[in-house]
Design a protein around this nucleic acid. Sequence first.
DNA 1: GCCGTAACCTACGGTTGCGTAGGGAAACGC
DNA 2: GCGTTTCCCTACGCAACCGTAGGTTACGGC
Lengths: 215, 215
Amino acid sequence: MAKEKRPDGEKRAPRSRMTAAERREQLIQIARHLFAERGFDATSVEEVAAQAKVSKPVVYEHFGGKEGLYAVVIDREVTQLLGIMRSALSAGTSRQLVEQAALALLDYIEQHPDGFRILVRDSPIGSQGASFQSIIGDTTSRVEGILVDQFKARGLDARTAPMYAQMLVGMVGTTGQWWLTSGRKVDRRAVAAHIVNLAWNGLSGLEKRPSLTIE
Amino acid sequence: MAKEKRPDGEKRAPRSRMTAAERREQLIQIARHLFAERGFDATSVEEVAAQAKVSKPVVYEHFGGKEGLYAVVIDREVTQLLGIMRSALSAGTSRQLVEQAALALLDYIEQHPDGFRILVRDSPIGSQGASFQSIIGDTTSRVEGILVDQFKARGLDARTAPMYAQMLVGMVGTTGQWWLTSGRKVDRRAVAAHIVNLAWNGLSGLEKRPSLTIE
DNA sequence: GCCGTAACCTACGGTTGCGTAGGGAAACGC
DNA sequence: GCGTTTCCCTACGCAACCGTAGGTTACGGC
């Protein structure tokens, strides 16, 4: 039986000899950063271990291997982003949904830049990358559902809804990527406002000073 | 001096022993296909050689190495797509420009699916992938220039033009990707029409039966 | 102060894949 | 035929990394 060591009251040694849970957490952080920067293939287990000032077998002890480590990192991010997007798309007028979704993604990007980079890169582990595709897929499905209702109510062809869902998700996603890459200089809400401006009004009807209606 | 062998009138042996130029071309085709499917890292020189029924040193003779081969493949695609996008964005009303750009990209995708996949994947060779980023960059700059003019004429803040350029390019690009991935079941012009519908009219003013004004 | 256990280490085997050395054989000119 | 060029091959060196075997050291309980 593994007795929980140092569960609460602690005396942290300056370095080394961490609890299993602590070490595990540290390795995940380091791995996330490296995977984000270099991608799956170009990241070596030894490098992760080195940055943790630890030797390779430690990593194997915790995660069974490189893929195990990667899987844990991915799983956390997928769960998070998926939850965020789901709740952003759960209620509101259609205009509000667009605003909420854009804001939610930008928020996630701001708080988890490494995670987002990994998800976007999405190195396929088996045959096809299931992680980001699954988020995109899930999110797109939700958007699709929303659009189908709207389309029906407005007399548009509901069969084309998937395509529009794809366009919206793609637009928001890549804009988020651009925003991240360009150093997040522009204000988050401003970016969201412009996204909504284009998505909602189109090029022909862009507002001069777009603003969000929520928050 | 290399005398041009078999420049025109030929007798093709059923297999092997090609001209240098022929072999080179064949290797490029094969490499493009493999790079598109597996990406840069996961593609081995030996595999390229094997598919050409040739041994590894032949590849090195022609391209100096894996990166050399990759560079040639990339360069061709970049040149092509860049030319296409440039001419699509060279003249017309702003509405026409959107239509032309969307159609042009979809056309390229249809005719060079492998090339597009590679460009999208864009495995960075040195530090940062310069190839696709350079196309995106170039295209986005052009779109940007067009938008700046439009924005000024319509009293919008020209400083936000880059952001809108990014959104448009991202939207068209990812929709193209989706279209490619989903087997290109929908008609090319129909996809373009819907892209334009969203980009031009926005969600609030979608047309019921969108159509293109050109070609 | 001793013992068990949890955390960690050094060292190695094995695979993969890049790039090269040096030689062989088909095609072409004469 | 016979040399020369051109195209192609087998065989190897070498480095990077994954994953594992087996031993070592700190820490906490008693």
